[in-house]
Simulated assay, not measured.
Amino acid sequence: MDKILIVEDDLQIQTLLKDYINASGYIAITASDGEEALMKFESETPSLALLDIIVPKIDGFELCRKIRNESSIPIIMLSSKKEDTDKILALGLGADDYVEKPFSPRVLIAKIQSHLRRANELSGKGSVEVLQCGDLELDIKARTVKIKDRFIPFSVKEFEILHYLMLNKNQALSREKIFDEIWGYNEYGDINTVTVHVRKIREKIEPDPSNPTFIETVWGIGYKFKG
């Protein structure tokens, strides 16, 4: 049974989330501050993390960064902040989704189910276990990315995008097609999130992100993985 880490200092919201998550067949693990969250993350090994941005001791942004450096589990940020800069920062740090308060608990549960389903499907997808191009190696089952035998931390969405591009190497894929494949046809979101994620992937795998050798921009269309 999947464990969901809830990091929220508002006890009313924390209890609401815990009740909905437990009722949906998951095990809710709660933390009221960043330090407690890191201890729970290490001891409970959750399958997904819900991180409020404004929490005591260690804020959600820093928590996201620390978790992403150790794990590729899905991370959903929760915040009352509506500024695009906060969303971009969260995605840039490795978050897979950003949910504004107030939110519908049922919609949030649907997002949790979607992220976990995609993570589980990806881990067993296809007969080929390792995709390789030059010094770049993507291990599908282990969910790891390596450059010259050096492991690179990837968020779930970053991993899925790179996996999808590598599976369709030398094919020009539109941002819309990538969004629909990774986030789902019925998912509401900003198509520019694809651009943000691709930029972060380039920063991690390209020797010179401004002159990429792996992921090429196809102007007017989207992106192509050069294999």
Rank of each mutant, 00 (worst) to 15 (best):
F103D: 02
D135Y: 08
I109D: 06
E121I: 13
S47V: 02
E36C: 02
V156C: 12
S127V: 14
K82D: 13
S71A: 09
F151S: 13
T144N: 07
E62L: 10
P102W: 06
K148F: 05
L50Y: 04
K146Q: 11
A142V: 01
D19L: 09
S127C: 10
P102K: 07
I109H: 04
P56I: 04
G92E: 11
M77R: 01
Y98S: 04
K18I: 06
N22I: 09
K101G: 10
M39S: 14
T45M: 10
S127I: 14
D19V: 13
D135Q: 12
E83W: 04
K81D: 12
K125H: 13
E62W: 02
G34Q: 08
I88K: 14
Y20G: 02
I75F: 05
L48E: 04
T85C: 10
R68Q: 11
V128N: 13
A31C: 09
P74V: 00
R106D: 12
I152K: 02
E100Q: 15
N22D: 15
E44A: 08
K40A: 13
V55F: 01
A110I: 03
D59G: 09
S24F: 00
K18L: 09
I76E: 02
C64V: 05
E70S: 13
S123P: 08
I29M: 10
S47L: 03
I140C: 08
S72C: 08
Y26N: 01
I112D: 01
R65S: 13
L131S: 08
K40F: 04
K66H: 04
G34I: 10
T85W: 11
T85I: 15
S43T: 15
D135C: 08
T85P: 03
M77V: 15
E70R: 15
G60C: 07
A90K: 06
F103H: 07
I109W: 05
D135A: 13
S32R: 07
D135M: 09
K40C: 10
A110T: 11
A37N: 03
V156W: 05
L51Y: 01
I27V: 15
V145G: 00
R118D: 08
L91W: 08
R65N: 12
P74Q: 01
V156T: 12
G126M: 11
L136I: 11
I67H: 03
F61G: 05
S104T: 02
L108R: 01
K141E: 10
V156F: 11
V156I: 07
P56C: 06
I76S: 00
V99W: 04
F103T: 06
S71V: 02
E137R: 14
F41M: 01
L48I: 10
P153T: 08
P105D: 09
E129G: 12
E44T: 10
S79C: 04
K101A: 10
D135V: 12
G34H: 07
M77F: 07
Y26D: 02
D96L: 03
E129N: 15
E70V: 07
L16P: 03
D84L: 14
A95M: 10
S71G: 06
K87M: 14
T85A: 14
A37H: 03
V107L: 14
R150E: 13
E44L: 02
L122S: 14
K101T: 11
A23T: 11
E100N: 14
S71C: 04
A95E: 05
Y98W: 05
S127L: 13
G126V: 09
K148C: 05
G126P: 08
V128G: 08
R117W: 09
E129V: 12
G94Q: 03
D149W: 00
V55W: 00
